[in-house]
Nucleic acid binder design. Sequence first.
RNA 1: GUGGUUGUAGUUCAGUUGGUUAGAACAUCUGAUUGUGGUUCAGAGGGUCGUGGGUUCGAGUCCCAUCUUCCACCCCA
Length: 453
Amino acid sequence: MANIPGIPKGTRDFSPEILAKRNYIFDTIKEVFKKFAYKQLETPAIENLSTLTGKYGEEGDKLLFKILNSGNFLKNVSDTELHERNTTKMAHLVSEKGLRYDLTVPFARYVVQHQNEITFPFKRFQIQPVWRADRPQKGRYREFYQCDADIIGSNSLINELEIVQMIDEVFTKLNLKVTIKINNRKLLAGIAERIGHPDKLIDLTVAIDKLDKIGHEKVYEELRQSGFSEDGINLLEPILNFGGSFDDQMQCIEKFLGETDTGVTGIDEIQKLFTYIDLFKFNNNIQLDLTLARGLNYYTGAIFEVVSDEVQIGSICGGGRYDDLTGVFGLKDVSGVGISFGADRIYDVSENLNRFPEDVKTNVKLMFANFGEKEEKYCLHVLKNLRDSGISAEIYPESSKMKKQMKYANSNNIPFVAIAGENEMKENKFTLKNMQTGDQQLVTEEEMIILLS
RNA sequence: GUGGUUGUAGUUCAGUUGGUUAGAACAUCUGAUUGUGGUUCAGAGGGUCGUGGGUUCGAGUCCCAUCUUCCACCCCA
């Protein structure tokens, strides 16, 4: 036991059974992305630390996995610095690279780096793992996959609509019931402005976001601690007690925001988006949620979050519009909007609810039993022909006992076993056994191909 | 990063107030069955009890440290 190796915490092995189900999720998402005309991109797991730091806020920087420089990684560190043991200070001296934290920032880096080769608007999707040095817990891993789709270089709200459509289609295909929550950062900015603290947007959003988790009083308390005035907090009351129809909500927020510039634009954007949304039928709930504030700090317009209606696991998908993500890399005025599906959490939800289709488990259709040299030769040609016809098949690689071979087929969920011994070979046929029913029939190669296709 | 929790066979778990050689089920392998799996029966292999230290005549059991698991907070997919 003691000498059995393990893997770092928060990481997982994906056995074939699990991977089959994971691929089902990836394939579903990928198919939808492609249908909406997004093109696939991959970027390296490692980025320069300068690309990553400062993009995710203070917390995010702490959660970046940093890679120790190769060779003499202490060569830039002086003895006094070593003595001080200030780890944050020393980190950039011993590490120049880090593992990617999400897919959006590398995408922004890619866009800026290749701006002359890209025709805008640019739609790309990306399915790759990301790493966070977080402490693992339920639905939270240190290595997990994101499935991102972003369109960059277009301000049109049609893009927001398409994102909602993609979300709805993906979860419909996966047979999961979800609620798509929508909000707009500009509304939140307007609220911050209205209550006299336009500079404290982030503190406001972080606090508001916890509303349904910790309740009104605690939120107020947190706001007070962040330095919001009592008057301002009192003003928030009607916003936090939001409810009613979409029109009621809009009226309420409109009245509240009054003449604040950003607020008015926000109202305009939300109204337009919901006008688009009303043109179509959706399978999942879509709601305006003013308390939705999550999302990374770079979001500036619409924000999305998707939660399962059936399992409590946190958000399984999130995204939004960012007006200036590429700005930090020197490319101004390029707006984008994107979405990220959390494949690992979606897996957990599907697994929990048992929503994977039956046929994801197996794709091997047939196994040839192996009786020895002569029989092997007889089977191998037919095996090739089956494979050429697109049928996934294999031959048991050695002539072990029949029992062992049958057991192998059984535990691998192979639905058919072809048996050929002297009798079958004489007739140029095979005994085809259906592993589910146990039935056997004598067939020719051609009949077998037809039966299995 | 803060607080709590867990660790015994491949897996899920028993193991009494500290007392001989640490058990079960499932899984694996072998045989009953030399051309038939998923059911049955018989048998076998598999453990430095997470790791390191300590207390004790004696530790799976008590203490400390460390790693790991899971959970909550912060934050997030």
